[in-house]
Amino acid sequence: MILMACIWAATARAQDDPDPRLVRAADEVALAYVVTGDAEVDRASEAGLRGLSQVLTQRTTIEPGAPLGIDLDRDDLSLLTFLYWPVTEAQPSPTPQAYVRLNHFLKSGGVILFDTRDGDIAGLGGPDGSAALQRLAAPLDIPQLAPIPADHVLTRSFYLLHDFPGRYQGREVWAEAPRAGAEAAEGVPFRNLNDGVSPVIIGGNSWAEAWAVDDNGLPIYSMGAGFEAEEGREMAYRFGVNLIMYVLTGNYKSDQVHVPALLERLRSEEVLR
């Protein structure tokens, strides 16, 4: 018995301690990005998520730690919640083991934002617009997608938004298609989607570049000039805030329309009693 306990204790100790960076990510809700191997893109991702983290910390209760880059072939994704994945042509496909981890990540509630960063090129975009995206995403268990409708909870998870701009604007962003028949359920003003959060969000607005700040907190990438640029950047941050709220709180905001009705029911039951 003692021997068995010793063996067990030994095996328990032999278990590898998780990567401290990932532990920190789990503790601090750090935002993570996929390392593509393209130094310029990776720097933009890091700076972008850092910029978004600063905005979140300034304006909301979410106070993410420093962003971290993820090597899909090596890192355990189960400690992460959100993954920013910029799509580049040169990016090698992850290994099959990495896809197993990615699929588990998506199934257990993680969210990936695919950014094809080609929103400035007219006529492309969407989940099937980019050959590189198709190549990378094909092995993933992705549900049926549809352009995000105007009543999606992403449009109201913190700010009220009409579109989802990044460095580029006006392109459709795609997420899991609403289930058939889910529209106007229970007479709510917008769709009461199942609490499952869309596992992927796909667009080409090059968000990280819009969010990116340098060490001094100044924007790195140009977004036009003057007031318009500031306005565009602000809207990009608002999308970023809404996105992270959506990732962390799910359909919470969508449910809140029910709260007055629930409270009303409590009140009326009071009267009945």
């Binding site: 789990a26 809700v29 909301t60 209760t61 979410i62 919640t81 509630g109 913190f158 609490d195 959060v197 992270i244 709220m245 962390l248 709180t249 799910g250 359909n251 919470y252 449910d255 809140q256 709260v259 629930l262 409270l263």
Partner: peptide
Amino acid sequence: PHAGERTWRNLLKSDANVDLIHFTIL
């Protein structure tokens, strides 16, 4: 909002017998 918040929502919303009133300090 934190990584575990949706765990609670999944638990409570999967139970058809529960009326959930949820507030998150955003």
